[in-house]
Nucleic acid binder design. Structure first.
Lengths: 228, 228
DNA sequence: CGGTGTTAGTTGCAAAATGCATCTAAGTTG
DNA sequence: CAACTTAGATGCATTTTGCAACTAACACCG
């Protein structure tokens, strides 16, 4: 016998890199509780419109930012009695990565960018959710090419290395970094394109190979859909 | 404004190793839909009793098996319209690891152990959930000491290596394996205890160091509780 | 026009980590 | 006590990693 309805929402941790610090995108809440406070974008699931919760997260981001397909992955589900003043609740959290330019240019109403290290005054358990997302990103960045999704369409290797170093918080050896990128085999040089402009040797521009450009990452549910 | 109630359950993938094959514990369902079919143990969340969904998963396992604290970790949340005939639904999935003896000795009513490679006839999207759990376990086993939770209290290094090889599905170099265990620094020799009995040199028995014996792994929510 | 500064990208080598074969150890069995 | 079996250690070859030095390609400046 089903239990009585419980509060069940989807929240999104949208991360971008400004300079060398990770920032999270917050929006001023338009309704109670915590009306007016900057918080993670989120809301109720719409079973009629949403295929699954990944779809719900994607829809929320699109509504807030107009961006259709950032890197988006399920983070985890947070639950408990104390996280929402209205009572026991569940939030399925996702995290997304975006180049900072995309969000800084956009005149999104109510948007607040905040450095992830000094979060204060977040409602619910949103601070915990953000910290879990940051930890996930740092961890995955140490063995994958996740940080490329914080860069734009095209980028140089020195730029990408700087992004890695910012995310991981430690310097990386140049040769090791390039070897690793080589063996991951996810980048391709953009024909002839070079980043120039300053008083130095111009750098080769790269982009994600086509097969990795599908940024909307697979969730357990969509894996099913693809396999069936 | 909250959406109308959606079906929201917790399911547990309980894995153990029989011989060299991973098995999942299924129970015959006691109610519709799919009454009588072997399926993952699960059920509705009880906000009154459960601190969070980890707690709900733990409770379900305890009710089914009597086992209080296996290794238990959140796997992910599965959602969609097609996974449950009753309509759009959400399942927060957990996975647990247990020594096979604990579950084989127990006279659990309705229990069916099934090899994870040839699952058939599972209701809902339980096959997908099991496969996601197996993939997670394989992946984590390649860099962590996760498989120790498939062994009993005490075990020898040759035995543990066999467990790793069964989970990963490939042979491991003996010296490399022992070096890795050494550097993980999670095991301690049991004073004087040796496993003997056959026509050979007896092997040293080991156990998890105390600080790792807390098998109930931390979830995002309980991390909060610990930090606060 | 050529020197200088600055960043990009490569090469060679030392150091560390890994894998493999072999060797020794400690028991049981006949 | 010789033969067999598995546990565990040791030595060395191979691979991987990290570092420093080197070459390359620009702009700027005299």
């Amino acid at each position: 016998m089903p239990q009585k309805a419980i509060i069940c929402t989807v929240d999104v941790v949208l991360l971008c890199l400004r300079g060398t610090v990770l920032n999270v995108a917050l929006w001023r809440r338009e309704r109670a509780p915590f009306e007016g406070s900057p918080a993670l974008p989120g809301g109720y699931i719409h079973p009629e419109e949403d295929v699954d919760t990944l779809d719900a997260a994607s829809r929320m981001l699109r509504e807030k930012t107009g961006i259709a397909s950032p890197y988006l992955e399920q983070l985890g589900t947070f639950s408990g009695a104390s996280r929402d003043p209205r009572g026991w609740s569940i939030s399925i959290a996702y995290y997304a990565l975006l180049p900072a330019e995309l969000i800084e240019q956009e005149p999104a109403p109510g948007l607040v960018l905040q450095a992830v290290e000094q979060l204060k005054g977040l409602p619910f358990d949103h601070k915990d959710i953000v910290q879990a997302a940051v930890q996930r990103v740092r961890n995955k960045s140490s063995y994958s090419s996740l940080p490329v999704y914080l860069c734009g369409e095209q980028f140089t290797l020195p730029r990408l290395q700087a992004v890695y170093e910012a995310v991981l918080g430690e310097p990386i050896n140049k040769v090791s970094f390039r070897r690793k990128m080589e063996e991951l085999d996810m980048l391709e040089a953009v024909e002839g394109a070079m980043e120039t402009g300053r008083a130095n040797r111009p750098a080769q521009l790269y982009r994600l190979k086509h097969e990795f450009q599908q940024c909307l990452s697979v969730s357990p549910r969509s894996l099913t859909a693809a396999a069936g």
